[in-house]
Design a protein around this nucleic acid. Structure first.
Lengths: 234, 234
DNA sequence: AGAATAGTGTCTCTAAGACAGTATATA
DNA sequence: TATATACTGTCTTAGAGACACTATTCT
């Protein structure tokens, strides 16, 4: 079966939808230290889809695992060391890349705020916010991105990753990849609400998640109110 | 960026884990018309892994969608027209094929018993049964297959597909793809139990699923006991 | 009546949701 | 004391699980 070596076969690339949570407001001029979900995008420097916003990723080498490929791309683009990755979906549409048949193995990536600060200038964190009809809108200080501003099929990939994250935090532990090693239950709840785009009653939330966390003997030391106990992932 | 055209890139293939449910016992000599989960395998006629049991699938053509590729392969192998397919996972291990770097886009397939009868002689339906430690064992009239008898990484793919099916029937409607258009609630419960490898109390099961089905005005006409109402998927 | 399969009523326990309450820090 | 955030008690309701019960066909 040497015939497999000379048939024209699809190219393979990776794309990563890397989310992070902003839990603390570095800009002290802001009154409300809200918690936002953010996604990593970069402006494409070449054709096709030049100057459109795209996901980090790239062509898969013949001796390379997709997760290594993505770590390499994210590290180049954002100097990030540790990022949780899980496979999301493999996009195979015939016309998703105008150059050739390229299938994309996409990944959902989660990193905490500390890691997310190490990004380069060509990669930008966009807040992922809700609209009235629950479609995501992406925003940074200067820009608002909606569907037509993405390159390739990357808007669809981001939407699927967001849906996966929203459903997966209901029954798994993935949310802890978005938080620092030690966190308060309020931080955890804020992250939960930022992802699900809805408020949950505090008492019920704590009953639900108390079995997933391990309390420490440390407390926050903010001024003017009761300190909060710090927890770690159990 | 013409450089993408002359780099050595991975091959792409598909693999489908097609399940069906045997709800009615054609062999009338058997006393117990038990319900079993079955999976479609075929004995590989060429190297590598010659004579090992493998999943239907094959190399993806450059202008072909994976689902079309799989339908083509299943139709060749089993003359089957309609099969529900959903993407399962893309397997990328560097050494999963000794010939070359081949990534496999795998699919979970579900078909009902009527469709499953149209298989060719080189494809065989194996029952998927439980062992004491909840590992699957595959069996037909002559053979019992366990891990070492599969080719490639196909045992791992089957295990993942089984896990996906087992978790997905708890919160979705996929189970109806395994049943005929009209079915009794007992058939539905038997299928449910055959997939999950455990018994559930009838009253609770019916309360749980009654919202997912639509009753018809038809009944079964078995002899010697009360007829059962036939339902369709809602 | 008896056998066989179909189908239901109801009790308990647990978890989700709503909401009002208490606790502990600083100014 | 006020204020700001942290944290809890408890009522109600919905669903899961267990189990005993009733219903309808044919022989």
């Amino acid at each position: 079966m040497g015939s497999i070596y000379n048939y024209e076969h699809p190219f393979v690339c990776t794309d990563a939808v890397v989310f992070t949570i902003k839990t603390q407001e570095a800009d002290s001029y802001r009154k409300l230290p809200d918690t936002y979900l953010r996604v990593l995008l970069y402006k494409r420097p070449v054709e096709p889809y030049r100057d459109r916003w795209c996901l980090p990723g790239g062509f898969l080498n013949i001796d390379e695992m997709p997760s290594d490929n993505i770590c390499r791309k994210i590290s180049e683009k954002s100097h990030v060391d540790r990022c949780y990755l899980e496979q999301l979906y493999t996009f195979c549409d015939l016309d998703r890349d105008p150059r050739a048949r390229v299938i994309s193995i996409s990944y959902l990536g989660l990193m905490n705020e500390e890691e997310s600060k190490k990004y380069q200038s060509d990669a930008v964190w966009f807040t992922v916010q809700n609209t009235s009809d629950r479609r995501p809108v992406f925003q940074n200080k200067e820009l608002i991105i909606t569907e037509p501003d993405f390159g390739f099929d990357h808007f669809g990939i981001v939407k699927m990753a967001l849906g996966r994250l929203q459903s997966k935090i209901l029954y798994s532990n993935v949310i802890f990849h978005l938080l620092p090693l030690e966190f308060t239950l309020t931080q955890l709840q804020n992250a939960y609400e930022a992802i699900l785009w809805k408020k949950v009653p505090t008492a019920n939330f704590r009953l639900k998640i108390i079995g997933l966390v391990q309390e420490t003997d440390k407390y926050t030391s903010d001024k003017g109110h009761r300190p909060a106990k710090l927890y770690t992932k159990k």
